[in-house]
Design a protein around this nucleic acid. Structure first.
Lengths: 110, 110
DNA sequence: TGATTATATAACTATGTACTTATATAATGA
DNA sequence: TCATTATATAAGTACATAGTTATATAATCA
């Protein structure tokens, strides 16, 4: 079986062990979202979200693509099969997302 | 898909996000071990291990069975399919364990 | 250019927590 | 009963970190 370095797994779990970050990645599962969309969807401040995104990005869990003034983030799980397995058990947020974002001027990502 | 409460998953990941605890559970994957065996296998003190085991036990990740003066701990994953998936990717420790424990008086668990 | 919007960073505070040391509890056996 | 071994708990310390507030950077558009 493809085993992953224990320390690396533990570090990744530490990131998911914070509810704000777990919330972020669960929202990013299935679509990319920009920071202002995450701010709209979550109950915290923009700097807080940006700082968590930074940590997720440093660990390679998400990637950023800037389009104009917006920074879109998406999950990067291709090389992380163990995390892919986990997300099969994460409740889908896709339904709730589109309703809440209709008033924003940025586009809704793919 | 059987989705699990996001907060619950995050709390479990927080436990696995500590390397000492991740080490403990990886050693318990496949066999039960008592505290003194974990002390022998790991590079830390008995109180430290006991305190981590307490947290894992409180969260329902491990169970304890006392036999004589020894407390044996084993993983409790039957009702946690998402964690079962993860452990498929954890490198097996079984080989290294039996060598190191030969000098101890407690039995080697099933 | 200046105003506005989006995002990132920095500094600070408050809280959480891993680990250590010391000690208590519990079981065993002489 | 007393000594020994195994484990748990308690108290203290040092460090990590989540969140806030203030500010900087960057892009857009009038």
């Amino acid at each position: 079986m493809n085993s992953i370095l224990l320390e690396q797994m533990s570090d990744q779990f530490k990131l998911l062990g914070d509810r704000t970050r777990m919330n972020i990645v669960s929202l990013l599962y299935g679509q990319e979202l920009c920071v202002c969309q995450l701010v709209e969807l979550m109950d915290t401040t923009q700097p807080n979200i940006s700082q968590h995104l930074r940590k997720l990005k440093d660990a390679g869990l998400v990637r950023e693509k800037r389009r104009g003034q917006w920074s879109y983030y998406h999950l990067q799980l291709e090389d992380k099969p163990h995390l892919q397995e986990i997300f099969k058990y994460v409740p889908s947020m896709n339904g709730k997302i589109k309703d809440k974002l209709s008033k924003l001027s940025c586009e809704i990502g793919a």
